[in-house]
Design a protein around this nucleic acid. Structure first.
Lengths: 133, 133
DNA sequence: CTCGGTGCAAAGGGTTTGCATACAT
DNA sequence: ATGTATGCAAACCCTTTGCACCGAG
C-alpha cells in the first residue's frame, strides 16, 4: 500500500524569503526568532508559525541544515551537508568545523555492536576573538 | 569584591533520593520526568520543581552528568565524567561510548584559532538489538 | 476552481521561578 | 532561631497546531 500520492508543494514568496534569510546568514547559525526578525523586513505580515513551517520544510528537503548547539534553541545553517561546530563559551559565537569522521566514537559504537550512520560533534571552548587581550 | 559568601547547602531527603534515582538508572539516561516518576515511589509528595532543582544542583556539583541527545529533553547520567553517546534511531535507546578525544574536530578548531576545552559527541545509527532479524 | 500555504492565536511540552511554609542546621 | 529547600502553581520559552482565509497552480 504505497498508494498515497505526494502532495504537490507550492513555492511561495514566504518560502523563498525564509530560504534567502538562512542563506544570507553566513556563519551565524540563526535561530527561528532571528530568521523571523530578518524576514519581517521584507514581508512584514509573515507569521512566526510560517517561518517555522518553512524552516522545517527546507530542512526536510535538505536545502538547509539544523543543529542543536547546547542551548535550548534550534539553530539553522545555510550549509546543509554534514559538518561539525565550535561554540565559544564566552561570547556564544558559532563556527563551522570541517573535520573527518570521529573515528574513536564510531569505533566504540561498532565495538558495542551498533551500526553508526551519522553523528553530531560540538566542540566548546574560547574562540579566537575572545582570546585576544 | 569577592565578598559574596557561598550559601550553606543542606542535605535533604529529596536530594538523596534524586541522586539515588539517577545512580540506579544504569545506561538508561533518564529525563527529569522519568526521575520524577521514580522518585515519587519513595517520596510521594515531592514536586517536579524540586526534582529539577536537585538535578541541577547535582550537575553543578559534578555528581551526575547531563546530556542533550538530539531530542528536546535533557537527559541525566549517572556517569559524571566526560564520555560520548550512541543513540539508536529506531528504538531511541542510548548507550555510553568510551572514545578518545575527537582529534579531527579539535584540530580543526585550533586551526581556526579557537581554544577547545570540551566537546559533545553523539553518534546516531541502529543499535545492536534493532539489527537482529 | 482547488487545495496547499498563510496569519493569527491558542495550545503544547519541557523547564524555571515566586512565594509561603517546612525543616536542616 | 536562621535561612535554605520544599511544594505548589504560575510563568517562561520555544515550537507546534487548529482554523478560516488567501492565493499559486
Amino acid at each position: 500500500m504505497t498508494g498515497e500520492r505526494a502532495t504537490r508543494r507550492r513555492s511561495t514568496q514566504q518560502l523563498a524569503v525564509v530560504l534567502a534569510a538562512v542563506r544570507e546568514s553566513g556563519r551565524e547559525h540563526p535561530s527561528a526568532e532571528t530568521i523571523f526578525a530578518r524576514v519581517r523586513d521584507r514581508l512584514p505580515r509573515i507569521s512566526l508559525g510560517t517561518v517555522y513551517r518553512n524552516l522545517q520544510r527546507l530542512v526536510d528537503d535538505g536545502a538547509i541544515g539544523m543543529a542543536q548547539l547546547g542551548d535550548r534553541v534550534v539553530r539553522y545553517d545555510p550549509t546543509a551537508s554534514a559538518h561539525d561546530h565550535f561554540v565559544c563559551l564566552d561570547c556564544g559565537d558559532v563556527d563551522d568545523l570541517v573535520a573527518g569522521a570521529p573515528e574513536g566514537g564510531l569505533r566504540a559504537a561498532r565495538q558495542a555492536g551498533h551500526a553508526p550512520t551519522s553523528h553530531a560533534l560540538v566542540v566548546y571552548g574560547r574562540c579566537r576573538a575572545c582570546q585576544e587581550g
